[in-house]
C-alpha cells in the first residue's frame, strides 16, 4: 500500500511543507440543499509548525480539520501530505495514514468508557500490532509524559476533565505521530486546565517536533501557537505568524 511505503522522517527537508492544500473545496448535500463549506482553500504547513485555526462557527474550520485529519474527503482540489495525494487515497489507505502519522485530540476527550487510562492509551498501538510488552511500556511512558503516572488503572469517570484530556493527548502521541490534530482541545475545560493543556501541547511541539494543528475559538489559546489562520465563510482569511514568547 502506498501509504506504508512512505518513509516518514527521512529525506524531507525541514523547510518544505509537510502539508499542502491546493484549491480545496467541500460541498455538502445535493441539489437545492447544497452547502459549500470550503470554497477554495490554499494553505501549507511546515513540519514542526504549531498552527491555530480560528474562525466563527460555520466558517469551515472544522471541515478543514476533518480533511486535514483524513477523516473527510475533499470535493475538489489537492491535499498533499508528505507528497502523497490524499484526495486519491481509498478509505483504508486514509485509515492507515491516520494510524501511522496522525494523532487526534477532541473537545469531548472521546475516551473509551469503562476502560482504564492505560488501555485507552494502548488502543492505537493495538491497531499497529505493537507487541504486548512494548505496548504496555510505551503507554506508561506516554502517560508519564502528560503527568499521569500512577493513574493508569483509572477509568475516565474517575478522572477530572483536565486529566481525561491529558489521557487523550497521551493516546494521540503514544505512536509518535508526525501531526497532532486537536479540535477545540480546551473547549470543555476551565481556564487553569486549559493553560495546562496548551503548555503540554507546546512542549510536545518544541521537544518532540510534533506538528500541531489546533482548532480553537479562544484567542487566549491561539497565542500559544506560532501561527494563526482565520477562516471566514469557507475561505482562508488572515494568516499571521509570530515568534512564540519564551515565558510559557
Amino acid at each position: 500500500m502506498k501509504v506504508l511505503q512512505l518513509n516518514a522522517r527521512s529525506n524531507k527537508s525541514e523547510t518544505a511543507p509537510l502539508i499542502e492544500l491546493r484549491g480545496i473545496t467541500k460541498t455538502y448535500g445535493q441539489g437545492q440543499a447544497t452547502f459549500q463549506a470550503l470554497r477554495g482553500v490554499d494553505m501549507s504547513v511546515r513540519q514542526g509548525d504549531f498552527l491555530a485555526i480560528m474562525g466563527p462557527s460555520g466558517s469551515g474550520k472544522s471541515t478543514v480539520m476533518n480533511i486535514l485529519g483524513c477523516l473527510d474527503t475533499v470535493s475538489s482540489g489537492e491535499y498533499l501530505f508528505h507528497d502523497i495525494h490524499v484526495e486519491c487515497l481509498s478509505h483504508n489507505e486514509r485509515a492507515l495514514l491516520r494510524r501511522h502519522f496522525l494523532g487526534f485530540v477532541f473537545q469531548g476527550f472521546n475516551l473509551l468508557a469503562r476502560t482504564s487510562a492505560q488501555e485507552n492509551v494502548e488502543l492505537p498501538l493495538l491497531y499497529r500490532g505493537t507487541p504486548t510488552a512494548k505496548r504496555h511500556k510505551e503507554a506508561r511512558e506516554a502517560l508519564a509524559l502528560v503527568g499521569l503516572s500512577g493513574w493508569e488503572t483509572h477509568t475516565p469517570t474517575e478522572l477530572s476533565g483536565g486529566q481525561q484530556q491529558r489521557v487523550a493527548i497521551a493516546r494521540a502521541i503514544v505512536t509518535r505521530p508526525l501531526v497532532l490534530l486537536a479540535d477545540e482541545p480546551t473547549g470543555n475545560l476551565d481556564s487553569k486546565r486549559s493553560h495546562e493543556i496548551m503548555r503540554l501541547l507546546v512542549r510536545l511541539n518544541q521537544e518532540w517536533g510534533i506538528t500541531v494543528l489546533m482548532v480553537t475559538h479562544e484567542p487566549d489559546m491561539a497565542v500559544y501557537a506560532r501561527r494563526t489562520v482565520h477562516f471566514v465563510d469557507g475561505l482562508l482569511g488572515k494568516d499571521s505568524e509570530r515568534e512564540p514568547s519564551a515565558c510559557f
Binding site: 501511522h100 488502543l123 492505537p124 491497531y127 494521540a172
Partner: peptide, 16 residues
C-alpha cells in the same frame, strides 16, 4: 457508535 468513531479515527480499518 461513538466508540466505533474513536477507533476509526485512531486508525482502525473497517475490517478490524
Amino acid at each position: 457508535t461513538r466508540e466505533i468513531g474513536i477507533r476509526l479515527a485512531i486508525g482502525a480499518l473497517g475490517k478490524e
